[in-house]
Design a protein around this nucleic acid. Structure first.
Lengths: 210, 210
DNA sequence: TTAGATAAGTATCTTTTGATACACAAAATT
DNA sequence: AATTTTGTGTATCAAAAGATACTTATCTAA
């Protein structure tokens, strides 16, 4: 737990000493294992999770399909929680831990309180709203206007942009889940990409040829 | 202009006397005619419009098609402006006046300043973020998972829910623009609805049955 | 080493959506 | 009254996406 604490203290968003003291006073630190479901659709959320280490995946579900909303990485929080905690609402999405994660959990009522008290907290909250909104807006435009093959291509190129390697260790099913379609559709399009020499397909990963 | 001022003073979101004084000190009131484009994609926004009277339509565009993001009615503001004004960004959507509208315009830099100073302003901003996010999330889920005929049906029933009449004075082209598809697709589906006795079609309006 | 789970390839068929083109009628404009 | 604009109906064709079903690998764990 000491290590987590150290990690937390390095987060720039909460460097204000008063705020840091307050957070430590009220927060709980929890650990989540890979696959743990932290937020369920319809759930009443009276807490705000801030990721210290690890990665959460937030997605919407519809019968047999799902679609990615966003990932929550270190120093970030979940829009769902923020939204429902602040306004006393229910979550309209699901959140699952993608890897072993360490999470700071705050009681919901503090969010509004600190809004007026701590400028850095205020900024953190608004930055969260803003960037999550932007992400979603972008995703919305993509889903509304672009065919899946284009979205898939963009997904793959965006993926390798943040990595040193051009290997994408993601299964077709996972891609389908992120893009809101089915596995067969993804496999079909990837095969087409392979014919066009854009990728090389392997079990468990995709190699991007640029 | 006096009438506008009176309308403004009745808005509950800004009933805090200090805040009201500040707004009146810094705001400009403008009038927009039907069809006036107030916000363009890519535009740098250094102002925040708050609608006093009338209606703005905010939408995304992609070559020949467009899709509705949300409407901005009285006592509401535009997420685009808020987002780009607060964080010094460019708009990623377009805004057009649907009818003759009266709008209060605030310089962008005040948004952040008042955030910490006036609780009611703080609440207004966060409520805006929250409700716009919810709307968008809902629209996103719809576009991702539901076929157009279902979305169209929901659109029509939602429309009459707020009206006393069951006549929807909207052209097929407008429906296409709101739902992100083309006129022919809408006409085709509506014809199907008519066969199923769900609607009766007329020039310029649609009559919902039951 | 064998059984079960997971990942991927592929064929077939259907439905949905989109693109294009043209006809016709009701408004609006001149 | 004549012309133009706008709104709608519809036919045809093509492409995109989804559903289903079955096969073949590869990996994992008993």
């Amino acid at each position: 737990m000491e290590a987590t604490l150290d990690l937390f203290k390095e987060l720039k968003s909460f460097s204000e000493p008063e705020l840091q003291k307050e957070i430590l006073k009220h927060a709980k630190f929890i650990k989540a294992n890979k696959g743990d479901i932290l937020i369920k659709e319809g759930q009443y959320l009276n807490f705000l999770p801030i990721v210290i280490k690890g990665l959460l995946r937030v997605y919407q579900q519809n019968e047999d399909r799902e679609i990615l909303l966003y990932y929550v990485g270190p120093e970030q929080t979940c829009m769902m929680s923020l939204s429902s905690a602040y306004f006393d609402y229910y979550s309209t999405a699901n959140g699952i831990a993608m890897e072993q994660s360490e999470i700071l959990v705050l009681p919901a009522h503090l969010i509004a309180e600190w809004q007026l008290k701590y400028p850095s907290w205020n900024k953190f909250i608004l930055r969260t709203f803003k960037s999550r909104y932007d992400e979603l807006l972008n995703a919305f435009g993509n889903v509304a206007f672009k065919p899946i093959n284009v979205r898939l291509k963009e997904y793959l190129t965006a993926y390798v942009k943040n990595e040193s390697s051009n290997k994408i260790p993601v299964s077709h099913q996972t891609l389908a889940n992120d893009l809101g379609t089915t596995r067969v559709v993804i496999s079909r399009i990837l095969k087409q990409f392979e014919k066009e020499k854009l990728v090389k397909l392997h079990r468990g990963y995709i190699q991007l040829i640029s």
